[in-house]
Simulated assay, not measured.
Amino acid sequence: MRGTLVTLLLLCATAGAQEPPLTVEASEGSLSVVPFALPAYQPETSWLLGGAAALVYQPPESSGRRESQLLLAGAASLRKQFSLILSSDVYALEDRLHLGGTLSAARFPDLFFGMGGATSASAEEPYTPTYHEVELSPKWRVLPSLYVGPSGRLYVAEIDNPAPGGMLDQGDVPGARGGTTVQLGVSALWDTRDSTLYPRSGALVRAQARMALPALGSTAAYNLLRIDGRGYLTMPYAPHVLAVHALIELRGGEPLFYDTGKLGSAEMMRGYYEGRFRDRQHLALQAEYRAPLFWRVGGVVFGSVGNVGRSLDEELLSDLKPGAGVGLRVAPVADVPVNIRLDVAYGSQLSFYLNVGEAF
C-alpha cells in the first residue's frame, strides 16, 4: 500500500513538471521547481490528498539526454494514513550515471488475511504498521540503454494494534512484532521507451537481486530476485497502443510477512486489495489496450492474472487469479501526454481507482 501512494506521488510530480511555474532557462537546459497537489481514490486508502514539490532538470532537446528529477512528496488519507518520500531519479555525467534512491516513511492501518493464495476473506485482521525505508541504487551505463550497479535497502517496521487473538497478536507470523531488513545486491535498468510519460513503443525492464542476512543486521534471512518488464506496441491504426506488463518476485528463506510478494494494487492486478494474498513467490501478468475516444478523452480495457505461493510449483501456476476492468483517460493539458485515469476493476472485489498517469 505504501508503494501505491509513492507511485501516485511520483506521477503527480511528473505531471506537474510539464508546465512548471518557476523555471530558470540556460544554454545547458532548464531547471524547474514544480509544486503539485491532487486528490485521489483507491480501495486501500479511500480518499487521499497528495502534495509534491519536484526539482526538474530538462536538458536541451538537441542533446538527446534524459530528464532528471528530485522529488519531495507527502500524502494523507481519510483513514489517517500518511506517506512521506524523498526520491531521486537523476542522470549525470552526460547520462553515463543514473542515481536512483528513496528515503520514505509511512503509517497505514492495514489488513492481514494470512499467508498464501488460498486465504479466506473472513480471516481479515486489522493492524497498524509504521515503515521507514532508505534505498540506494546507483547505476553506470554499460550499453546505450542498459545501466547496472549496486543496490542497498534498509527497511524498519513497527507493528501496532494487531487484532486481539489473531495470528499477528499471537506472534506466529514472521515479522508480527516488526523488524529490520538490510539488503545488499545489484540492480539493472534497460529502457528503450519512446516516452517515460506515455510510451507508445519500446520496452522497460527493471531487475534486482538482493540478499538480507542477520550478519548485515536483518531480523530475517532471505534473498530476492525481482524482474519487472513492460512492453509497448503502437497498432497499425495509430494512436492505439497495446501495453503488456509482467512481474516476477522470487524469494528464498523466510522473509517477514510485510516484505513478501503482495497481489493487488492500483498498478498491477487491479480489482484486488493490495496484500489480500501474499507469500514468498509472486507472479503477475497484465495487458491493456489504450485507444482515443474524443477530444482529449481515451478509453482502456485491461485484464490480468497472477498468484502468490510459498514455492514456485505447479500449484502456483495452476491456480492463477484473474482480474479485468475498463477505464477512462482524460488529458487535462493539450499536447501533454499525462492523463488523469479512472479505472473500474473486478478481481476478488469491485474496485475503483482515481489516479494520475498510466497504471504502467
Rank of each mutant, 00 (worst) to 15 (best):
L283R: 03
L204K: 10
V336K: 05
G178Q: 04
D95Q: 06
T130C: 06
T7Y: 10
Q42L: 14
P60D: 12
S201W: 12
N355E: 10
A37E: 12
D335Q: 11
L49N: 05
D259N: 13
R310L: 10
T128D: 11
I159W: 04
Y127Q: 03
R226P: 03
L283A: 08
P138A: 01
H132G: 12
A212R: 01
P214W: 08
P43V: 11
L111S: 12
A238V: 06
A212I: 08
V305P: 01
G229R: 04
S27M: 11
I227T: 00
P59N: 15
E314L: 11
P21K: 12
R66W: 11
M115G: 05
M167G: 09
L84H: 06
Y232A: 03
T180A: 07
E267V: 15
Y237N: 14
Y147N: 05
A123C: 12
S87T: 00
A243F: 13
A52D: 07
Q81A: 11
R141T: 12
F36L: 13
D313V: 06
S87Y: 02
F112P: 06
F82L: 07
T128G: 01
I227E: 01
S63E: 12
P150K: 10
S311R: 14
L263G: 06
L247H: 04
G100W: 04
P174C: 10
Y289R: 10
G3K: 05
L213T: 10
V308S: 14
P35Q: 07
V134R: 06
L256P: 01
A331H: 04
S201E: 14
Q18M: 06
A75G: 15
Y198S: 12
L11T: 01
G252E: 01
D319A: 06
S265I: 10
M268Y: 01
Y237Q: 14
S145E: 13
A188T: 14
L97P: 03
R193D: 08
L247R: 02
A203M: 09
A26V: 02
G185C: 11
R329S: 03
F112Y: 14
P255N: 14
G271C: 09
R2C: 01
G50D: 07
V142E: 06
L93I: 02
T45W: 09
Y131F: 15
V305Q: 00
T7N: 15
S30I: 02
L285H: 02
P39Y: 14
L5G: 13
L78E: 14
G325Q: 02
Y57L: 15
L9D: 11
